[in-house]
Amino acid sequence: MAAVPELLLDPAIKIWVLLPISIVMVLVGILRNNVTTLFLSPKRTVPNVRLLKEQQHLGLLRTYRRNHHVFISQSDFDEKFDLFKKEYEFDNLMRHYVADPEKLQKLKENPNDFNTVMSDLSSGDMMMQMLKGNLANYIPQTVIMYWVNFFYKNYIVMKLPFNLTNNFKSMLQSSMNMIDLDASYVSAISWYFVNLMGLSSIYALVLNDNEMVTQITQQTTQQQQPAPPTAGGPTVDQLFNSELEGFKITDIKSCFTTIHDRVLEKYQ
């Protein structure tokens, strides 16, 4: 088969096609990120009161286990355990989540449904958040892709300075149906995809902010948003039960056992 003669690319293509696509993509990326930042909730550290309550009570149980030495005798510690056991009974804990007594009874019969309850509570808003996130990513990309396709369809914008095998044709020559064309020629739409995936170093150079670069890269590569923490993992009831189990088996070592001798030794 005769070799395909090398194509002569108009140098104006670089200025009027290659550069505009790259510049537009960089600018749209930065613009989208700034728009997103405008909508971003301020990073407050105020936790929800219900979660705070859980954290505080779990923390208190852990503190009791850690500082068991402040009790004089095991019976004092065990008295406290009995109090906690009563306080953190299933009903007492769950009524913060489920107000309806019937639902509470059902939940009591099958505690594993707790996760379903929590995910039901959060699913509506979660869907909305995902929808908004996806719209923010898809709309600009679709618009740019349409723009590239409309103006520069079937354009060869550049030739790579090295040879590639034919397997790269599908990647570098999207939308071009030329079997004999060498794989090192890049079409406009492929240049768009290459930019989409590989602009992070340009963003790093322009923005000089690693956090923002990661954010833009994640947006463009369409990563899945993580699920809310409430939709999985152990239930509140399980967490408290596990802490109480630990509490139950704690053998206290009172700091008062030898305190008479210690004080006499220290100050006499």
Binding site: V35, T36, F39, L40, S41, V46, N48, V49, R50, L51, M118, L121, S122, S123, G124, D125, M126, M128, Q129, K132, G133, A136, Q215, Q225, P226, P228, T230
Partner: peptide, 14 residues
Amino acid sequence: SLTSQQAGPLSRMT
């Protein structure tokens, strides 16, 4: 917020 990962009634501040 477009990027907030919080969702559900737990995310609403009171």
